[in-house]
Design a protein around this nucleic acid. Structure first.
Lengths: 193, 193
DNA sequence: ATAAAAAAATACAAAAAACGTATAGTAGTA
DNA sequence: TACTACTATACGTTTTTTGTATTTTTTTAT
């Protein structure tokens, strides 16, 4: 017996691809089972219901992202480099999620799910806040700025990094991210190095 | 009173965008009405049911495409130019349709719809067949080839024109279409002009 | 201003789909 | 052989969707 049975993995993989495309409302448990070649009983062996499955998937994604985030932060590179990599990570992880599923997660469409998502994303946010506080102590970030202000600006930056209009202005998303982080750290004034 | 009421147009537009994204199975009439800001009663004033609406939409698309096709064919340009433009038209019209909806239309998911679609697309096919027969008479296409063989090859060509692998080989879909029609008309041998 | 037409809102019975569980059975395995 | 993981089927329950009837509101034309 392995820790995660093959069947469970199949369910998760299939459900994820269906949720991503159509959102959770439009995907039934029976459909997931059919696509994953798994009987309904097996599904209920692993998950209480659809919400339970969604939570599990979100947890998994968050956990994976957290680990990647830690890896980025533990590198011996300048702080602004780390931030750039973090943005890139965030963009890739949210990639191709349908507007439908986004609404399910963030808005009140399925209260239990959006609440759960807020919980876990708050935990990740705290990690980030801590890192920025540290950076302030180390003099890598201006001590004048309130941490809440920085987080607010970071949120905006994430949004802009995904803006198609801006992306098309630069050759690649990566180029845009570099510009954005540069702007985030140094403003519009020319740098002295 | 106008020929097509605004409400009807709203329904069609909303339904089309929802069907394109999620397929017809996943979209309910009530949802269409909600999104289109139309009451359910108004929906049933215009359409018998969901299948009726889908048929209507497909008809409209086919009619529009037919007209565009006729416009292409009535131009005073070489026959191979017309074919290139036709392929481009076909690609653009099928653009962004979800795999789900594609299955609904072409496979037996909703028999009434797929049958209906075959009917109308056969009518369009006959237009094309006639044009090719004409082209054979005018000496624009080799008289040695059976018309069924040509249609078969044309079908294949349509498929290849949408193949991502091939598209990425050329800069743009248009470049690929030019190459394909060139191959379709002249084979791999160098042209004499 | 008012009558007629169009659309919305509400309510509802009937049908369909999805849910969750019970039970019996199969295939592989220690 | 007993055990485990899974499948298949069936079934009652709940939820969603459908299609219609009825009443109220809004729009439009006169």
């Amino acid at each position: 017996m392995q820790l995660k049975s093959d069947k469970q993995k199949q369910i998760i993989k299939t459900a994820q691809s269906l949720f991503w495309k159509y959102g959770m409302r439009r995907v039934s448990i029976e459909e997931i089972c059919r696509e994953a070649n798994v009987s309904k009983m097996t599904f209920y062996k692993f998950f209480k219901n659809k919400v339970d499955l969604v939570k599990y998937i979100l947890d998994k994604i968050m956990e994976d992202s957290s680990k990647e985030y830690q890896t980025i932060m533990n590198q011996d590179i300048p702080f602004h480099e780390k931030v750039a990599q973090t943005i890139d990570l965030k963009l890739r992880s949210v990639d191709k999620i349908s507007p439908e599923f986004y609404a399910d997660i963030h808005q009140n469409a399925v209260p239990e799910v959006s609440k759960h998502f807020q919980n876990i994303s708050n935990r990740v946010l705290n990690l980030i806040v801590d890192d920025f506080k540290n950076a302030q102590r180390n003099g890598e970030v201006s001590k004048d700025l309130k941490i809440e202000f920085i987080m607010y600006q970071l949120e905006k930056l994430f949004a802009m990094a995904g803006d198609q209009k801006l992306i098309s202005l630069y050759g690649s998303p990566q180029d845009l991210i570099m510009q954005l982080t540069r702007f985030f750290f140094y403003g519009i004034l020319p740098r002295d190095n």
